[in-house]
Design a protein around this nucleic acid. Structure first.
Length: 556
DNA sequence: ATATCGTTGGCTTG
DNA sequence: CAAGCCAACGATAT
């Protein structure tokens, strides 16, 4: 029996390699492609900021256009998702809801709630994942249930698993216009596409005998102004599958560049991205990682030599998988407390200093330029992320990585629950990375790849007339030189908020202390422990946290 | 038990 | 500008 289906788009905002949408089409006589714009959810669970709102709306508009070309359309419905679903299940006599499976707790909770609703209202739920290359559960199973904590070990497990699943075929107009399928609302269909009117289900034709003139208006993709989001958008990234695919193709034409890509050698302060800059498209599912993975495999197969993980382009996709895997099996992954893999550190709470960092007012041009690019454009290079993250946490300010993570979540177009938290733990040497004596210098680090400071001049124009020898440390210029540059330090641009040498030396000592204490407590715990499990959670040894962790594990 | 090694530091030396 | 040192962690391999 064929279903009457609502397909819920959540993250996978694309028509290529979209397995659950394909399955929805194949199992349905009527299909409603829906995006529920639940502002409370997007704000409180996903913490999306203004730039990401723009990117999301652009992606929805593009999805709508692409669906229209195939004889369908996107129905955007604003409201709380459960209420919206409840209303439309009845209104449209729905028997099936399909949706992309996602791994974030808030998306999983949403899916569980939809399952419950299905049991109550009598519709089936089908969800399939396509956001990652591998099913994280299979990786965990091979590793004996616990996540691999090193990339090397992770790669080893992948070598046992083999290549990821290949992408499903692209959707075509035939999929949407097959005999007897009606896709989207009949009234809307006629409005949006006069030529190819679908063969409609009988009862739907009856219902729409008096088409609502406001139907199209009612389901359209809202504009930023409708959502009271500032129309200002300086980001060069434009959301959507079409733009994402264009950028992908553009990068793949340079096969030599693709084959020899070596991440640590890319330049954090080039004025145009030295990496692909595709992350925003992957994070919102405008692009399929499986599609990219296999396009890379094809190029590697033709190349004489190619780079390898961890530094290769494919290796970058695998880093993403690595963090998904660890996040999926670690309780409280996005926080320190109750997170068994995270070093427990007593960070300073200093709202004023945090604010300076966040608002690009640290007085270190290299740091402030990066934070300005982040704020204006929503994307910064990976190494630039390292520089500002190290500065905020173990390097200079000794402020919790969770605070930095929240700022990135709001400002980054590619913000991703697992990857963001994982990298912040990495940079703060709280997990994954342990060579804490390696501290980025906020003056020296950027100089290597941009001695003229063109990057700083672009993002901090107030400093643009300083000679190159002062551009990374303008406070060392004499009063006369500052006047000449048209920028007085302390008036037009702040003095550095810390003495880097003193701050980083001090923090290094703190970090040593933390490790020493950790070591001692682990020793104590080991001596006391009857239960060998207690040793495993030595990193986070308080009673409360252990029980929290155990509860979270068993409910998974 | 012990050795190995880590995607991307900074500094000195030859 | 490449190599080695710094001081040294901790997950994994052996």
């Amino acid at each position: 029996m064929l279903h009457r289906t609502i397909h819920l788009f959540r993250k996978e905002l694309r028509l290529h390699d979209n397995p659950v949408l394909l399955a929805a089409l194949q199992s349905s006589e009527a299909l409603y492609p829906v995006y529920i714009l639940d502002r409370a959810f997007l704000t409180s669970s996903m913490h999306i900021g203004a730039l990401r709102w723009h990117f999301l709306l652009q992606s929805l508009e593009d999805l709508h256009k692409n669906l229209c070309q195939l004889g369908s359309c996107l129905l955007v419905i604003q409201g709380e998702y459960e209420t919206v679903l409840r209303d439309h299940i009845q209104k449209w006599s729905i028997t099936q809801v399909t949706l992309d499976a996602e791994m974030e707790p808030f998306y999983k909770e949403m899916e569980a709630n939809i399952q419950c609703l299905g049991a109550e209202l009598g519709f089936e739920v089908l969800s399939l994942g396509s956001h990652s290359l591998y099913d994280t559960q299979r990786i965990l199973d091979i590793n004996g249930g616990s996540p691999p904590l090193t990339y090397k070990r992770f790669l080893h497990i992948l070598s046992l698993l083999g290549d990821p699943e290949v992408p499903v075929r692209n959707l075509t107009a035939e999929d949407f216009q097959k005999e007897g399928l009606s896709s989207c609302l009949p009234g809307l269909e006629k409005k949006l596409r006069v030529k190819d009117v679908l063969c409609l289900a009988l009862h739907e034709e009856r219902r729409c005998s008096a088409p609502d003139p406001d139907l199209a208006e009612c389901y359209r993709v809202p504009l930023p102004v409708d959502l009271k989001i500032s129309p200002e958008n300086l980001s060069p990234w434009r959301g959507g599958e079409t733009e994402g695919l264009q950028r992908l193709e553009q990068h793949l034409t340079d096969q030599g560049w693709v084959a020899s890509f070596t991440k640590p050698r890319t330049i954090p302060n080039s004025l145009l991205p030295s990496t692909t800059g595709l992350s925003p498209y992957f994070s919102m599912g405008c692009l399929s990682v499986r599609t990219f993975f296999y396009r890379l495999s094809n190029i590697y197969a033709q190349a004489k030599h190619h780079s390898l993980p961890p530094v290769s382009l494919q290796g970058q996709l695998l880093w993403r998988e690595f963090f998904y895997t660890v996040a999926s099996a670690t309780p409280n992954f996005t926080q320190m407390a109750g997170n068994p893999i995270c070093l427990q550190i007593c960070w300073y709470k200093d709202a004023e200093r945090l604010h300076k960092w966040k608002m690009a007012q640290t007085g270190f041009p290299w740091i402030d330029a990066i934070m300005t690019q982040l704020r204006q454009e929503g994307w910064i290079h990976h190494l630039a992320r390292h520089a500002v993250a190290c500065f905020l946490t173990r390097g200079d300010l000794w402020i919790s990585w969770e605070e930095g993570m929240k700022v990135f979540e709001e400002l980054l177009l590619d913000a991703d629950y697992s990857i963001n938290a994982g990298n912040w733990m990495w940079l703060s040497a709280s997990a994954f990375f342990h060579q804490y004596t390696r501290i980025f210098c906020p003056v020296r680090f950027g100089k290597r790849t941009d001695p003229q400071g063109n990057y700083i001049r672009k993002y901090l124009p107030i400093l643009k007339n300083f000679p190159s020898k002062y551009i990374y440390e303008p406070w060392t210029a004499s009063e006369e030189e500052q006047k000449q540059a048209g920028c007085i330090i302390g008036r037009d641009y702040p003095f550095p908020m810390v003495n880097h040498k003193e701050a980083s030396d001090h923090n290094l000592q703190l970090m040593r202390q933390v490790r020493e204490e950790q070591h001692r407590t682990a020793q104590l715990t080991r001596d006391d422990a009857d239960d060998p499990m207690e040793i495993k959670v030595k990193r986070d040894h308080t009673e409360e946290n252990i029980s929290k962790g155990k509860v979270a594990r068993t409910t998974e």
